[in-house]
């Protein structure tokens, strides 16, 4: 692979039912590239959690996935409320999600820890009232 492959997605914030569509598409694209099932699984789970977060907390956003020879990079960007305390948000079990979100099966406080667990690098830049940018990388 000489040139980096890029995929761009707009994540709709109004429709919980369709949340995860971008991750499903990325999983399909990575399968076509012949990457290992474990790498594909790690990327798609991390991105799926991120996508769900953007839908339930931030009213949607954008996702950019870049595949190079060495790694797969996922950039998630939203203009949501931002994360007040990132250290707290990284703790397993800590969540600010409403009961309504919990009734949908999310908001267990595992999203961000899962994203870190499945990736080799993760960086969160967040400003309250402005939005959140998350960069994740999975080495190939």
């Amino acid at each position: 692979m000489s040139e980096a492959l890029k995929f761009h997605f707009d994540v709709d914030g109004d429709d919980f039912t369709s949340a995860g569509k971008a991750s499903v598409q990325v999983k399909k694209n990575l399968r076509q590239l012949g990457l290992s099932p474990e790498t594909i699984r790690r990327v798609s789970i991390a991105m799926y959690e991120g996508e769900i977060n953007m839908v339930i907390h931030a009213g949607g956003g954008i996702a950019d996935v870049t595949v190079t020879e060495d790694c797969i990079e996922i950039l998630l960007s939203d203009k949501g409320p931002g994360i007040k305390d990132i250290d707290k948000a990284m703790q397993e079990g800590y969540s600010t999600a409403s009961d309504n979100i919990r009734s949908l099966g999310f908001g267990a406080g595992m999203g961000l820890p899962n994203m870190k667990r499945y990736t080799d690098y993760m960086d969160i830049k967040s400003t309250v009232g402005v939005g959140t940018d998350i960069t994740m990388r999975v080495n190939i």
Partner: peptide, 16 residues
């Protein structure tokens, strides 16, 4: 699971 929504199917798919 006892949860019924599309994310159940997607979660299972993500987990292979």
């Amino acid at each position: 699971t006892g949860l019924v929504n599309s994310q159940v199917i997607r979660t299972a798919e993500m987990m292979d």
